[in-house]
């Protein structure tokens, strides 16, 4: 369980997060949604100890992120950030392999290779595994980075807008893979999404943030309503039902 208690964050006079308390129990996919600047990425960064905690506490399986050593946490929680500019000339396999670093410190074992192969397969990278990263398209690179995070083989996987740069096909493939991982390997996935329909279709739970606070929290069916979405985003978003699945239509006419 990721437990977030009274977490606040400020840069200068700007308050990014205000007294946030929320728990994410083990298992399933939790989607973080909300308008730009709501503080979703900051919250994720804090949970993965990429940003120092200013106020409050965050713990992962009762390990406080501020006092637990980085090595221990790296086996517990993996994160993929939004702006991943990789300038290194590495092959896809090498990059994904670095996800094993917390476990093997660079001396890859048979088991490591098995997990690397699995990650490559899972995210459709097997064919391009020997290619250099700078020869890949933006979407392929993005998938390689997700595979690397997965390869870290942690209970918790935090993904900050992983659908960036992906076309519709690969976006939906990636979401299906994540769903599959969550269901069959008992992984806990927290994912920041901009497209609320992906959140509505694939997540078990949606947490909506706005101005540094949690404004809505519940099952997709509870969040994917005209009233709830209108409150979160500040404009009217019609929701229709297609085959029992609520679909938001944030297109103004």
């Amino acid at each position: 369980m990721i437990r977030i208690e009274n977490v606040s964050l400020a840069f200068g006079k700007t308050n990014i997060l205000k007294e946030i308390s929320v728990s994410i129990p083990k298992g399933g996919i939790t989607a973080l949604i909300g308008p730009n600047g709501a503080g979703k990425s900051s919250l994720l960064g804090l949970a993965a100890r990429l940003l120092p905690l200013q106020a409050g506490d965050i713990s992962v399986d009762n390990l406080s992120v501020s006092s637990t050593s980085g090595k221990v946490l790296a086996k517990k929680i993996a994160i993929l950030r939004q702006d991943n500019h990789v300038g290194s000339r590495l092959t896809v396999r090498e990059l994904v392999g670095f996800g094993r670093f917390p476990h093997s410190h660079g001396h890859l074992t048979e088991n490591d290779h098995r997990i690397i192969d699995e990650s490559l397969r899972l995210f459709g990278l097997t064919e391009m595994s020997e290619r250099l990263l700078d020869t890949l398209s933006g979407g392929q690179r993005q998938r390689a980075l997700v595979a690397m995070a997965y390869c870290q083989d942690t209970d918790y996987l935090l993904l900050d807008e992983p659908l960036n740069n992906l076309d519709m096909y690969f976006a939906s493939e990636l979401m299906k893979s994540l769903r599959n991982i969550a269901d069959t390997r008992a992984k806990t996935i927290v994912i920041v999404l901009h497209d609320i329909n992906y959140a509505g279709s694939f997540a078990d739970r949606i947490i909506a943030m706005k101005d540094g606070q949690v404004v809505a929290d519940g099952k997709p069916a509870d969040i994917m309503t005209e009233t709830a979405l209108g409150g979160i985003y500040g404009f009217n978003i019609p929701v229709i039902s297609v085959g029992g699945q609520p679909i938001a239509l944030p297109f103004r006419r």
Binding site: G45, A48, R49, L50, S69, G70, K71, V72, L73, A74, K75, A78, I79, R81, N84, H85, V86, G87, S88, L90, L95, F98, G99, F101, P102, H105, G106, A149, Q152
Partner: peptide
């Protein structure tokens, strides 16, 4: 050397991998 390679991937990736 491995740590240096990871550092070239950036601060976030390094911390994420427990360095």
């Amino acid at each position: 050397a491995d740590r240096l390679t990871i550092m070239a991937l950036g601060r976030d990736a390094s911390i994420g991998l427990g360095i």
